[in-house]
Computed example of a mutant assay.
Amino acid sequence: MRHFIALLMFVFCVGSNALAQQAGFPSKPLRIVVPNAAGGGTDAFARVVASKLGEELGQSVIVENKPGAQGGIGTTFGAKSAPDGYTMTLAFTSTFAVNPFVHKDLGYDPLKDFAGVALGVTQPYLIVTYPDAPYNSLKEFADFARKKTGGATFASTSSQTELIGVLFQTIVKTKMLYIPYKNATTAVVELSRGDIDVMVASLPSAIPLVKAGKLKALAVTGNQRVAALPDVKGAAESGFPEFEAKGWYGLAVPAATPAPIVQKLNHHINLVLAMPDVRASLVAAGFDVETSTPQGFSELIRQDYKRWGEVAKQQRGSQP
């Protein structure tokens, strides 16, 4: 009986200490690990959120860039961090729903190693081409791709944009040649002079080039037009409703992080995303601001993990 009582006291003390830590959270600076280099869309999103979230929580929130291995280095670091809420990882479609199917020995399992905290933004992509291309819509390009000897060429700079191209060729029943690029700058240069037929590009990087006339937009890979490019049709309006392909950014923590801490972070992140200046800044960059519960974001991760996994299997099955 004495041992049993001692065990109960131990469990009570441990539980009390955990609750006390959660009630006082946060008591020190937090960080958001961005698994990409500074200056890109993920980094820009993280910095907008970090600045305002620090004010909300009364603690500084530091953005820590850990690029490499197409997001694998930083995401693995986040997965192995202490599950105390002080380290959040910038989660996005490529690292959480695509890379598990295209890279071996990833170092983390997005479904087992992480808990979703909050969705932040979603964004479709743009199908862009060179200004003098002989096609002006997604339907015209589909016809061109079916007829071109050897197949049309498409460029991308990430695993997800590659699979978006694979999805499109499956829908239009043709075969295209994928050309990978390590950075968007080189791809845009070669696309703009007509060396490549089309490119799957992110909105923040492509919008300024389209507005400057350096690239021509064929369609948005979502089923609605985007405010930043109101004249560019969405996939459904272009005749391809199945071609809805969006990316998303959100925040995640190690799976063992206590639920009250996850809920508190979610609450304050959603407050930040509701701020008019934050929303205006993100919308101007081509994002759709979307809030969620932790459970809702985790479910989105699971759904896209399944969807892009199926597309990746189709790609492998079509390879010789």
Score class of each variant (00 low, 15 high):
Gly72Lys: 03
Asp105Ser: 09
Val200Lys: 04
Thr129Tyr: 12
Ala217Glu: 08
Val61Ile: 04
Ala91Lys: 01
Arg2Tyr: 15
Gln314Met: 14
Ala285Thr: 05
Thr75Phe: 12
Gly250Met: 04
Val262His: 01
Glu64Tyr: 03
Phe114Leu: 03
Thr170Ala: 10
Phe10Val: 08
Gln59Ala: 15
Ala46Gln: 03
Tyr249Glu: 09
Leu119Cys: 03
Ile62Ser: 06
Asn136Leu: 09
Glu55Pro: 04
Ser292His: 03
Thr93Trp: 00
Gln303His: 14
Gln295Gly: 10
Gly247Asn: 03
Thr153Asp: 14
Thr185Glu: 15
Pro254Asn: 13
Pro131Glu: 02
Gln22Ala: 14
Val200His: 08
Ala97Gly: 06
Tyr135Trp: 15
His103Leu: 11
Gly24Thr: 04
Val121Thr: 09
Ala46Val: 02
Val253Trp: 01
Leu177Phe: 03
Ser205Arg: 13
Tyr125Trp: 12
Gly250Tyr: 00
Ala280Lys: 12
Gly247Asp: 00
Ala152Arg: 05
Lys264Val: 13
Ala245Met: 12
Ala118Trp: 02
Leu273Asp: 02
Ser298Trp: 13
Phe144Glu: 01
Leu191Val: 02
Ile164Tyr: 05
Ile5Tyr: 12
Glu290Ala: 06
Pro260Thr: 09
Leu90Val: 10
Gly165Tyr: 01
Gly68Lys: 05
Asn270Cys: 09
Asn223Leu: 07
Ala18His: 02
Ser238Glu: 12
Ala115Cys: 14
Ala118Lys: 00
Gly247Arg: 02
Arg146Ser: 10
Gln160Ser: 15
Thr122Cys: 04
Ser292Trp: 08
Asn270Gly: 13
Ala50Leu: 06
Tyr86Gln: 07
Val262Pro: 01
Asp132Gln: 14
Gln224Asn: 14
Lys147Ala: 15
Thr221Pro: 08
Pro204Val: 06
Val198Leu: 08
Gln70Trp: 00
Thr291Trp: 07
Val33His: 02
Val11Ile: 15
Leu119Asp: 01
Val188Met: 05
Gly194His: 11
Met88Gln: 06
Arg316Asn: 14
Gly39Glu: 11
Lys80Ile: 03
Ala201Leu: 10
Asp132Pro: 00
Tyr135Lys: 01
Ile73Pro: 04
Thr174Pro: 00
Gly71Val: 00
Ala82Thr: 08
Val262Lys: 00
Ile269Gln: 03
Ile179Arg: 05
Asn36Phe: 15
Val226Asn: 00
Ser238Met: 13
Pro320Asp: 02
Tyr130Gln: 06
Ala217Tyr: 08
Phe243Pro: 01
Ala245Leu: 07
Ile207Thr: 15
Ser238Trp: 11
Ile32Cys: 07
Lys28Tyr: 07
Ser16Leu: 14
Asn266Glu: 15
Ala228Val: 15
Phe141Arg: 00
Gln314Pro: 04
Arg31Leu: 08
Gln70Met: 10
Ala255Arg: 09
Ala212Met: 05
Glu299Gln: 12
Pro320Thr: 05
Asp304Cys: 07
Leu126Pro: 01
Gly194Ile: 10
Pro83Arg: 11
Ile164Lys: 01
